[in-house]
Amino acid sequence: MEFFRVENVNKNYSGFQALTDVSLEIKQGQVFGLLGPNGAGKTTLIRIINQITAPDSGRVYLEGRPLRSDDIYQIGYLPEERGLYKKMKVGEQALYLAQLKGLSRRDALKSLKHWFEKFEMQSWWDKKLQELSKGMQQKVQFVCTVIHNPKLLIFDEPFSGFDPINANLLKQEILNLRENGATIIFSTHNMSSVEEVCDHIALINRSKKILDGNIHEVRSAYKTNTFDVSYHGKFDEVKQALGNHFEILEHKENPHLNEMTIKHLNGNDNNSLLLKIAAQAQIVSFAERIPSMNEVFIRVVEKHNL
């Protein structure tokens, strides 16, 4: 089910084209990765979704109708450049931001209590923000983002500043939010986290969308039909069996286990390759190389920049 749609959006800042004809469709309950190099236009797009700025042309829809000004209550936004009032007490601050997001004082207190307990932050309530460590401040900021139980969450580099343990906790929390029905836009340069949490990605480069799709499909689309095989048997026999449809990129003969990397030159029929090897040797492992998001990112952006 379509939840959020961006249609042919353009934005120009006095001569600088920030977005060119960008369209996106985000489904209900998706974790949508919004990727792109620095300065590509991601932040501008996020600001348009947040209604901080308006597009020069194009439209934005939430649940099938044009975005309205009171939709900001349905959106939670964690900006890349974090910030809270340094001299304000944590509890007061969270309460203030929650009320700005339209919660009543009572509801805000209730919800805050829940989140503070969950993250074991109760003792921070009366502390000034500047008394907390950077990681703790990030936690407070995360809570302030989700406090009003928004339907759409926008996380811009959410893991920066977190240690691995807290980053993991946060990842779990993001997935929990999706379980509970939230739709999430996730913007980051950390491609391994994209692989872990995103269902769908869009890649923006130089103001244009250059890639859009399900994460598995995208990665598959960029695979090179390369396989890693390890086996017991004779290398020469295996090589002969493969014939000229395959190129052996690399091979290593070890006393107990032979390894090789094979590129399928035409087509991607895994079974025929498997059968050909199996006829000559005992296969121990067989795996196709799926490019990481990192590789896809670099290849796509570099190609687009040419």
Partner: peptide
């Protein structure tokens, strides 16, 4: 200036 330097302004103007 404090709000701008602290970057809290981005959080707030996504609400108001």
């Amino acid at each position: 200036l404090e709000e701008k330097q602290n970057r809290i302004v981005e959080v707030i103007i996504s609400s108001v």
